[in-house]
Design a protein around this nucleic acid. Structure first.
Lengths: 110, 110
DNA sequence: TTGCTCCTCACGTCACGTGAGGTGGC
DNA sequence: TTGCTCCTCACGTCACGTGAGGTGGC
């Protein structure tokens, strides 16, 4: 038995949309591992892991094109990208803190 | 003397882009108060305040269309929108916390 | 044959960014 | 006349959302 799944199954299992996966394929970030006899798109375990990785990187705020540039790079390169990204995430974090405070201030005034 | 400014001056003073203001005008969120004798777009103090308000609401995570729907509403309505928005901002805040932690975990592993 | 699912386009969305082409005397 | 600034389009960007139209026996 293999863990190869159809697109539909992958979407359910990983919580990504059909269109999102199609988008990954459009820019060559992922490739279906094949088709079944009815023409359905199939994704083997490797492809599924890749989709999960992409999703994770997106949650860390990376754009698809950025992900494409480092996903197959040596881990030292990825590490360096992550360290830079943490700075952006912290900026965003502060920005949100400020926004929440401003919202409360406005609520007080109104 | 009046505090009416040209588009260029408004952009510099408020830190918004020319295209952003044009975008506000496209959906009827703002209207220039007039033109000078050379055809330059002019914004009086009221228009400037409006642009500043829009910018603030955008920083709180509201979309332009949402802003259009409540910007001229009674303050109780705006207050209610802000209270809902704070919940979204807090969700985002938590999501960022998680993302930062995940990034650090990945950095450790690599 | 009727449904249902999947596939492949392809336009729509959002908030501008980025020029292109034209005007006018700051 | 050459520059420079401003104006009004209008296509580009990003990451999908949302159908439309066509296929095939799960």
């Amino acid at each position: 038995m293999s863990d190869t799944k159809t697109l539909h199954e992958v979407c359910n299992a990983l919580g990504v949309s059909r269109r999102a996966v199609q988008g990954y394929e459009e820019i060559g970030l992922v490739t279906a591992s094949g088709r079944n006899k009815y023409g359905y798109l199939l994704y083997d375990e490797e492809a599924q892991k890749r989709i999960e990785q992409i999703k994770l990187y997106q949650q860390l705020g990376f754009k698809r094109k950025e992900i494409k540039e480092f996903i197959d790079a040596p881990s030292q390169v990825i590490k360096s990208m992550l360290e830079k990204q943490v700075l952006h995430l912290k900026d965003e974090h502060v920005r949100l803190d400020v926004a929440i405070k401003k919202a409360y201030e406005l609520i007080e005034i109104l």
